[in-house]
Amino acid sequence: MSVSPATPAPPATAPAPDDGGLLRAIAVTKAFGGLVAVEDVSFQIPARSIVSIIGPNGAGKTTFFNMLTGLYAPTAGRIAFDGRDITGRRPDRITALGIARTFQNIRLFASMSALENVQVGQHARMKAGLFGSILRPPWVRREERETRDKAREMLDYVGLDSSVHEQLAVNLSYGDQRRVEIARALASDPKLLLLDEPTAGMNPNESARLTAFMRQLRDERDVTILLIEHDMKVVMDVSERVTVLDHGTKIAEGEPATVRNDPRVVEAYLGKRESESADETGETTAEGG
């Protein structure tokens, strides 16, 4: 059985790039003062996979994301990405190494156009500095042109036609804002894309399309995807592996079908009353599969 409560931490050697894990978190802990938000979580994502983290509200999922992207430095533990130790590195460095993300409550640069938002996403891949920006030599002009073209391409790729490219992010519809955010993240050429509740606020139709899009991304662009998701249908549908966090610790991990039936998971989600609600969840996921 692949489901095991909090598998013992792997041997404490430098994470090798060739063991199939694009990202490895080893015994990661984050405490805010006395409050432990994430405790001793070990975790790995194989390259070119789609993996979900689920768990009830306040389980520490977003905190975990924030550690992966460098917004928080872990209190203890290590994180390795693509064969490099990225524990406690700055967020911009981590983005440059190839991790990009979206946010639970969309964080676009509201007063910038969709296009400019995606151009900011390419910051780490550009070189123009202070004097380059002022003097604008030919290579900077070329770089600007290329970024603009690439931003348009990204917006097209996520399904936004050119009529919205110049619109200010704040004026876009909710669904389009989500797309721009994904385009902005993709613009940094990530190897790993972290999506924080990407289907929040979407109807089943939109969710299904996004699910298909995630697969397409993985297949066409070799992007590994890690998502936090509440919509069980999406989780069961798209993920190859699921990790369940509760109260900051990992309580289960494995294939969606197995995790779904894990009693600890059911309990974490539903408290003591297991019977009816559990069946409901089961039904939804069954439909999805």
């Binding site: 041997p11 404490a12 802990t29 203890a76």
Partner: peptide, 19 residues
């Protein structure tokens, strides 16, 4: 468990500046 403490040690050393 061992891994955890080892990892913690690494973090501490890496952030002497932060200390």
């Amino acid at each position: 468990m061992e891994a955890a403490s080892f990892a913690a040690g690494r973090v501490r050393r890496a952030s002497a500046l932060a200390w």
